[in-house]
Amino acid sequence: MAAKSRQFPDEMDDNADDIGMSDADLEALMSGADAPSPGKTIDVEKLEPGERIEGNVIDVRAGEVLVELDGKHHGLIEEEEFEEDEELPLPGTRIKASVIRYDAAKDMVLLSVGKARKEVFWDDLRPGSLLEARVTGTNKGGLDLDIKGVRAFMPISQIDIKRIEDATPFVGKKFRVEVTQVDKADQNLVVSRRAILEKQALELKGNALARLSEGEVLKGTVVKTN
């Protein structure tokens, strides 16, 4: 019985020609000769969109990352799936991704790392978690923020310790925030900057009081009288 030939994306055939790689070389690479098999066979036809999967990177070229899934099947991740300033993973890297779909004609599982990262991000979120955020805009109740590609909301009362009337000057700024509410089902994330500022103020006050000694004379300025 003749061996079944493996079909590859047209783009990969073009890329192989560009770097002088023969069809035989590409077939050997896809066969898993350069990467260890994870050991568990995957029924690619039963994979569901959004299902999380792991594999070993076996090649990176022309903006595509080729991943060995089980020694028999392979996945493909487009460069656009990675952050703009992020380096593509090196061969041998173990990577987590989400299934987009299985392309039976090309015998290739199309994968997304962005979806997998968001799933992990939501799974790890807890009230009190500290995150870096970027303000993307304002709304009627406060600020819209971006945190690792996920939209978050900050009530205007949680922007600063002092009262904020106009939140527009904060657009484009980056700062650390504390998670106050998490609802993964509704993709609802509420954060606070004020909570962090209040903790910092208390810490500074505590440090200042700790440096005082009994009988020490201090100078001060009256800021308010009753």
Rank of each mutant, 00 (worst) to 15 (best):
A24C: 05
P49I: 10
D103H: 01
V109F: 08
L202S: 07
D23P: 13
A116M: 10
L26I: 13
N207P: 03
E132D: 14
F153Q: 04
K72L: 10
P49Q: 10
S112A: 13
L69G: 07
V223L: 12
D160P: 01
G149H: 12
G32V: 00
S112P: 05
I95T: 11
Q7S: 08
A105C: 00
D146R: 08
K4P: 08
L47P: 02
K205C: 12
K205H: 11
V67G: 07
E119F: 05
F175M: 08
E216P: 01
P127Q: 05
V135I: 03
D43L: 12
Q187Y: 10
P127L: 09
R61E: 07
M108N: 04
D59R: 11
L88D: 02
H73P: 01
E78T: 01
E51Y: 11
E198D: 12
G55E: 08
K174I: 07
E214C: 02
M154F: 12
V217P: 02
D70C: 09
V222K: 08
V60N: 08
L204K: 15
V135Q: 06
N188D: 10
E87M: 10
S22H: 12
H74A: 06
G141P: 00
L218S: 06
D146A: 05
G142Q: 02
L212P: 04
A16T: 09
A28T: 15
F121M: 13
N139A: 07
V150R: 02
T221F: 09
R101I: 00
T180W: 01
V113W: 02
R193C: 09
F8P: 06
R61P: 00
M154A: 14
N15I: 11
T168L: 00
K174C: 04
A97W: 03
K106C: 05
E64H: 04
Q187P: 04
F175T: 10
V171L: 10
F153D: 08
D59P: 07
T225M: 10
E198Q: 15
Q181H: 14
E86P: 01
A152Q: 01
A97H: 07
K184Y: 08
Y102P: 04
K72W: 09
V44P: 02
M1K: 11
L130V: 10
I196S: 11
L204H: 10
F121K: 08
E45L: 04
D18Q: 11
S22C: 12
E86C: 06
D25K: 13
E79K: 14
I19V: 14
I19L: 13
T180C: 00
S112N: 10
K219A: 12
Q181W: 05
E48P: 00
I100L: 15
F170G: 00
R101F: 02
V109W: 11
D17P: 00
